[in-house]
Design a protein around this nucleic acid. Structure first.
Lengths: 129, 129
DNA sequence: TATAGTGCTTCCAGTCACTGGAAGGTCAAG
DNA sequence: CTTGACCTTCCAGTGACTGGAAGCACTATA
């Protein structure tokens, strides 16, 4: 398979796949013409990566996950630990965003939003409290 | 005021303040010795920026907000529009994160997390569905 | 007056995970 | 033989800082 087809099937841009090769996440063969030649296994790996990235794992986490995936002697506890840690980070981010949202929503609500200059949002940003 | 003091009072790292000068968000005077000399107004601006950044506004949004803040002829509708747009983006992000969280939480829950290799998390990442 | 320590300066490079674009080689169809 | 799609490499840029090196400025103490 050439990169275009594998990109389509894995749901990743070709650029991203080249980048993943650069950083050693996949190592496709090369055809005589210099084109990358992807196996079904390469495709499988890339789809795995696409899903892990979609769940917000960092590239380094993905590398680790891929390593665990390919390690027949892995312990599922290691995978679970990594995933649980990541879940915690997602929760933290959600909490942060919720706080931002609450604060900003209050300000937006207080702003009449008309042609006059006085604005609780700007006041909220400028306040010394 | 020197940068250290203003950093302390605005709650921003000195590095960040230098960066903000670089990109034209503040323009402190200079003392004879070459040190930046911040006025109370500079400090005020920086505190404004710190709060806007803490609410997740991009630097470009901050630039716009600062412009509106200093424009006596502004219309609060413009501020409200910007803030509302940003609120929407926060909501989108929260929704995304919640979806990630739900998917990953299910997988984590299904994983016994012991010394054995079989792992629903990896299976979930590898599946062709 | 020498010196030690802190704070300031600039500049360069790195972060993360791509993304865009230029310049050019390869291949299949007409 | 040309067109156009697809592939290659390499370099630079994104956002918002952050770290670190090299060196100047200031203050306090011996």
């Amino acid at each position: 398979m050439n990169i275009g087809q594998v990109a389509e099937r894995a749901g990743l841009p070709a650029k991203t796949i080249r980048y993943y090769e650069d950083i050693g996440l996949v190592r496709p063969q090369r055809s005589g013409n210099g084109y990358r030649a992807f196996s079904e296994q390469d495709l499988h790996k890339l789809a795995f990566l696409a899903r892990a990235r979609a769940l917000g794992f960092t590239i380094e986490d993905c590398r680790t996950l891929l390593g665990l995936y390919e390690d027949e002697a892995r312990e599922s506890a290691d995978v679970k630990a990594l995933a649980t840690e990541h879940l915690g980070q997602i929760e933290e981010k959600i909490a942060q965003l919720r706080e931002m949202h609450a604060t900003l929503a209050k300000l937006v609500e207080a702003c009449h939003g008309d042609h006059r200059p006085d604005c609780p949002i700007l006041q909220g940003l400028a306040k010394d409290g």
